[in-house]
Amino acid sequence: MSSLILRTVARLLLPILVLLSLFLLLRGHNLPGGGFVGGLVCAAAIILQMVAYDTATARRMLRGSPWLLLPLGLGLALLSGLAALLWGQPFMTSRFVSVPLPGGGALDLGLPTVFDLGVYFVVLGTVLLVVLNLGEE
């Protein structure tokens, strides 16, 4: 498919969708969102490029194999669980730190965020693997 309109829109939408996916990831603790949805949105952004251009372009944009996203994500999730052992708590006990933001407000970051980031990468990697494989056949 080579529609000029779609290609232009896809290029414009890419950063917005990636930002949206990060937004969904970060607000996921108390509000609708989270790593799963975030990962899906980010994957959708890249699939949009695949539809607008072709799979080769989408692969080039990734700069690396989506394979590696799987161990990265799983590893982050496992480490976020094991981190609790450092202060003698059972596996997966959560902990939060409040990061003050410039200009007032604060960002609550905790181990669940790290876990969610892991989920984000795993979902992104899985979806891309499936779709890229199907798209290249």
């Binding site: 394979w67 799987l70 990265l72 496992l78 669980g81 094991l82 052992l85 708590q89 596996f91």
Partner: peptide, 24 residues
């Protein structure tokens, strides 16, 4: 002793992650 009961799950998972990382 907070770690040990998780090990039967965590150890194969860690192994699988490393195997994926070295998939070539």
């Amino acid at each position: 002793m907070t770690l040990h009961l998780v090990l039967p799950v965590a150890l194969p998972l860690a192994g699988a992650i490393l195997c994926l990382a070295f998939y070539r």
